[in-house]
Write a protein that binds this DNA or RNA. Structure first.
Length: 355
DNA sequence: TAGGCCATCTGGTCCT
DNA sequence: AGGACCAGATGGCCTA
């Protein structure tokens, strides 16, 4: 593993910028050597993964042996009782050097481990319903979205019913931050206005529709202080752009009146608010996120000045995908797409909507 | 400038 | 002894 690591210069960090190494001139020099010429550097320093030969140890071992002999002599000496516990060995220069090298190797392993972890997260990003090259989901958001996605799919399988789009998106967005929610909603070409209305928030924050049994989710809609999230606000961009769900084109549900219902085509509701506390499996048990006290307050505001953090405002074209325009041409996220081709389960999901 | 996110280092713990 | 894993600390980058 280390061999692989050391043979891959990209896995080696620019450690010069780390003060910890800068303080240790010896270590810094070693790292610099590794950075400049990893293989040769490792060979020069006698470090080749964990496969150091005995001969490589010899010089140091000689010195250590002296120390150990001292210790052994102490333990076996005369009538004195043996000391318990680990022997304290003198930190000779060679021992210090070896310790440093161990630390360097451990750091490299840790880096590699985190890179692997990040690679896995990247792979996960690619199979969750929303993927953007430029606006990458954060780690925590990726995990949350993945959890919601798994739950949504399992609900589909469990109920065998075609889910309500709004509920589906709601499920996906449970506990996600506002930018991520907008991203997901944008991917699905669904205005987040449909998630929850301010009125629904006031009514206790329970929202139920569709086969997802969303009513069982313990929403906690915090009061929104933003004036843009007040009933009657006309600031929503969808008021001017109109709203056109591409759900039909995305999921092939054009024949279903359910998705052309006035609920989705009617007057635009005020900016929505969701506090996404996602309770798993309807048991009322707090999700890990809840247990950790995560409490995301989501509100959608279309005011230019109230652009969601780190996200673009959702701008839905009035024709959009209904006229055959691909999502990527409609959304500001040029590289954002639903990657059905990479997620077989999405095909199954589509099958639900096609039926 | 504060806050979020991230990469990395580091020491501790557990296991082989 | 050494590797895997973890959590805390730290500093950089970016954005509102």
């Amino acid at each position: 593993m280390l061999t692989r690591l050391f043979s891959d210069p990209s896995l080696l960090p620019d450690v010069q910028k780390y003060s910890g190494w800068a303080e240790d001139s010896d270590s810094e020099d070693k790292i610099k050597g590794e950075d400049q010429d990893t293989q040769d550097g490792m060979e020069a320093s006698g470090l080749r993964g964990d496969s150091r030969t005995h001969s490589e140890h010899e010089g140091e071992d000689d010195e250590d042996d002296e120390v150990e002999e001292e210790d052994d002599g102490e333990d076996t000496e005369g009538d004195r009782p043996k000391k318990r516990g680990p022997k304290k060995r003198k930190m000779t220069q060679a021992r210090i050097e070896r310790s440093k090298m161990r630390r360097i190797k451990a750091n490299a392993r840790e880096r590699n481990r985190m890179h692997d972890l990040n690679s896995a997260l990247d792979n996960l990003r690619k199979v969750v319903p929303c993927y953007s090259k430029t606006q990458k989901l954060s780690k925590i958001e990726t995990l949350r979205l993945a959890k919601n996605y798994i739950w949504a799919l399992s609900e589909i399988l469990r109920s065998g019913k075609r889910p309500d789009l709004v509920s589906y998106v709601q499920t996906l967005c449970k506990g996600l931050s506002q930018p991520t929610t907008n991203l997901v909603a944008g991917c699905l070409q669904l205005s987040s206005r449909n998630f929850l209305t301010e009125q629904q928030c006031q009514e206790g924050g329970r929202y139920g529709s569709g086969s997802f049994s969303m009513h069982s989710y313990p929403y906690q809609c915090a009061r929104l202080s933003s004036p843009h999230c007040q009933p009657g606000s006309n600031s929503h961009p969808l008021r001017t752009h109109g709203y056109c769900s591409t759900y039909d084109s995305l999921y092939g549900g054009s024949g279903s009146p359910e998705y052309n219902s006035p609920e989705y085509e009617g007057p635009l509701s005020p900016p929505v608010c969701i506090n996404g506390n996602f309770s798993l499996k309807h048991q009322g048990s707090a999700s890990p996120d809840n247990e950790k006290g995560y409490h995301y307050s989501m509100h959608y505001s279309g005011l230019p000045g109230s652009r969601p953090t780190g996200a673009h405002n959702l701008v839905f074209g009035s024709s959009g995908a209904r006229s055959g325009i691909h999502t990527e041409n409609v959304l500001p996220y040029h590289d954002m797409h639903i990657h059905q081709e990479r997620a077989p389960v999405y095909d199954e999901l589509n099958a639900f909507f096609h039926n």
